[in-house]
């Protein structure tokens, strides 16, 4: 065990050993170790190079932190918007009996995801405006479906007998949703959100095309100016962010999964 904090958490989970399994396993630490390793190698490689003035303008700590902040900002705000919009819509959709309504909404969300993100973002920029808001909107459209679909599926997969006994015990439909269906759907909804987050990290790189910043700036500049250290740094950073976000989301999934399931 590592340190006091993790020790305490391990104790609080060890109460249900046969249901939850061990929380801190060696597998848990593979991702952060890998990321640290890759970033270390990148740093070593960059410091061995003679950087010209163009490269120095981008490969400095302030520039990288700013681009990373923009990138993370876009990703997190977009995912938060998706969560706020898609989860309630998914709940509403699961309440409707109409297959037509469900089909239409899922179809629209499907189109959002199936259309190439570059196309969506550029079309939006042409008909509307360039900049942050447009990029945000394109990201929301693109990563809407996984959360919507998983909310719907998560609620539908709740055992019919569990739902019936909840009803039979005198819970109102809202109480069934709040105390039974939603808690049991949490793992599936979170899995959808995790997929969305990772989508967003990747797709946020094209925000650069409409002047919305992010690590895409480094990738595109590196390509256009044939400065491969810049290009590679941008690409590796995006990959590392995606890995780390996926890792954090995985931990959140395990922490928020209802006990006993």
């Amino acid at each position: 065990m590592t340190g006091q904090a993790t020790g305490d958490m391990a104790v609080s989970y060890s109460r249900q050993p046969s249901v939850r399994g061990r929380f801190f396993t060696a597998k848990r630490f593979v991702t952060p170790v890998l990321v640290v390793l890759v970033l270390g190698i990148l740093l070593l490689w960059l410091s061995s190079l003679q950087l010209d003035s163009i490269e120095r303008r981008t490969l400095n700590i302030d520039y990288i932190i700013n681009r990373t902040r923009e990138h993370l900002g876009l990703t997190i705000v977009a995912s938060a918007l998706v969560a706020v919009l898609a989860i309630p819509l998914g709940i509403a959709l699961s309440r409707t009996r109409s297959k037509v309504v469900r089909g239409i909404v899922l179809g629209v969300a499907n189109v959002g995801q199936a259309t190439p993100a570059v196309g969506v973002i550029i079309l939006l920029a042409i008909v509307w405006q360039t900049g942050y808001t447009t990029a945000l909107m394109a990201l929301v459209i693109y990563s809407f479906l996984p959360v919507l679909r998983n909310t719907l599926i998560g609620l539908q997969q709740v055992d019919e007998s569990v739902r019936e006994s909840a009803r039979g015990m005198g819970m109102t439909p809202n109480q069934v949703l709040l105390h039974v269906e939603l808690p049991l759907a949490v793992p599936v909804i979170l899995a959808g959100l995790r997929t969305s987050l990772v989508f967003c990290v990747g797709v946020a790189t094209i925000a650069t095309f409409i002047n919305a910043g992010g690590l895409g700036d480094m990738i595109v500049n590196g390509l256009k100016l044939q400065r491969y250290p810049v290009l590679i740094t941008g690409a590796v950073l995006v990959a590392c962010i995606a890995l780390l976000i996926d890792w954090v989301a995985g931990i959140a999934e395990d922490l928020l999964r209802p006990r006993g399931t």
Binding site: D159, S161, V162, E164, S165, A166, M169, P258, T261
Partner: peptide
Amino acid sequence: LRRHIGYVIQQIGLFPHMTIAENIAVV
């Protein structure tokens, strides 16, 4: 009405995310 009528079904339908005590405490 249903809160005053005991209801037991074949599949039992215990709430998997609640402890036995919490299950009994629902009504």
